[in-house]
Amino acid sequence: MRARITGVATYLPQRTMTSAEVERRIEGYVPHRGVIERLTGIRSRYVADDDQQASDLAAEAARKLDGHADADLLIFASASQDMVEPATAHIVAAKLGLSCPVFDVKNACNSVLNGIQVAEALILTGAHHRVLVCSGEVPSRAVRWQVRDHSQFVDSFAGYTLSDSGAAVLVSADAERGIFYRDFSAESTAWAIGTLPGGGTAHPRDPEYSYFRGDGRRLKEAFELAGPDVFLNALKRTGLRWDDFAVVAVHQVAMPYLDHLATVLGIPEDRLVVSLPEHGNCASATLPLQLALGEWEPGDRVALLGLGGGISTGVMLAEM
């Protein structure tokens, strides 16, 4: 028995915001015009309506999937959440009219990848047969628009790259094909490089901690220090090449880093789905978005390469 990805769907809010519009919205400090697009390659990102919650985006994506109503487990896997308690999975299930067991999985931008990992494990044990893994990312609520100076702009820069989005992945038991390789690693000593500190026990109420904070240069250095082994080992251990995959989905935060990673890993350009320029950094919804945008057919192999704050990396190979 294997666990196969039998459905992928995404939801994108109607409203978009260009990088130029982001720069014009910032008050106080005035950034150099064009700096966001020049440094990241992002032209546009999606912004949820004020009354849309993370659960709404996840539910909208899930409704597009045939068979979602037959799920016997729902995992909400996202960096965003509606509230600290209860698990956002309960809210999504209520909106979908589902009565199956639910729980949340959270690991920054690798949340969906880890959600699929958990779904596969539970299917292989026989505990569940059809698992709905869904995500609703609304990072726009944590963007700092009142900026004091250049230093605070740099500290808040990651927030200006992020995009609101929903995603849903249906993972089902299959006797013939499915996920055939997965591997994950973490360098947790780097957890403080990029954070959204508010809402937990460390900073439960101070609004100053309700914004994204991070050092892009240090984060890039941390991923480079972690190295590409988790990705390259996937090829060594399976005897495959990137050319053997219809789609190689890679989490994308900035075009310069994507180009660097693709060069280091030797990923052919025609296997990549470049979602970043027109969609921004969709956090944990990025990999499902690329599967939805990519060209593949049932039986094709796909590779999912994850990068998440904390920091963590992960790879999953599957026959669709």
Rank of each mutant, 00 (worst) to 15 (best):
H260Q: 07
P207I: 13
P204L: 00
G126D: 07
V315P: 09
A190G: 02
Q52H: 08
A94Y: 05
A89F: 05
A283P: 03
D270I: 12
L57F: 04
P256E: 08
L122P: 10
L65Q: 06
L265N: 13
M1R: 15
P139D: 05
I36K: 05
F103R: 04
T201I: 03
I193L: 06
T88I: 04
G266T: 12
D229N: 12
R213Q: 13
P228S: 11
Y211D: 04
G28W: 15
L65Y: 05
R38V: 01
Y181F: 03
R15I: 08
S163T: 06
S284N: 02
D183R: 15
Q117F: 13
D72W: 10
V22L: 09
C134A: 14
P228L: 09
E137H: 11
T16I: 05
T16N: 08
S99N: 13
V230K: 09
V250E: 07
R2L: 02
A190C: 06
E269F: 12
G97C: 02
G309Q: 07
V248L: 05
A226G: 13
W296F: 06
E120M: 11
A283W: 06
L305A: 03
G41S: 05
D183I: 05
A234I: 08
L287W: 03
V230S: 13
G239Q: 10
N110L: 04
G97D: 02
S99D: 06
R141A: 13
H203K: 11
L265V: 13
L162V: 12
L276G: 06
D243G: 15
L74F: 06
V171I: 11
T161G: 02
L307G: 07
A9H: 03
L196I: 12
D183Q: 13
G194K: 08
E27A: 11
E176F: 08
G178T: 13
G280H: 07
G126H: 07
S165Y: 07
L265I: 12
K95A: 05
P101S: 07
V133W: 01
T313C: 08
D49N: 15
A61H: 02
T238S: 06
A222M: 07
E120T: 14
V248C: 07
P277Q: 10
L276F: 14
P256Q: 13
E176W: 09
L287A: 14
D243L: 15
G136H: 02
F153D: 02
R301I: 01
F212P: 08
V273T: 09
R144M: 00
F184W: 02
M316N: 13
T125D: 12
H150V: 08
S135Y: 00
H251N: 02
Y46I: 03
V273R: 08
P139G: 03
D244I: 02
V154G: 13
P277R: 14
G136D: 02
S99R: 15
R141N: 12
R24A: 08
R4K: 14
E85M: 10
L261D: 11
A48N: 10
V253M: 14
L307I: 10
Y181A: 00
K220V: 05
R33G: 01
L96T: 06
V8T: 10
I42S: 12
V30Y: 05
D155V: 07
R2C: 00
Q252A: 04
G159F: 00
S163H: 02
K220L: 00
S312M: 06
Y11S: 11
V30Q: 14
E295Y: 10
L276E: 10
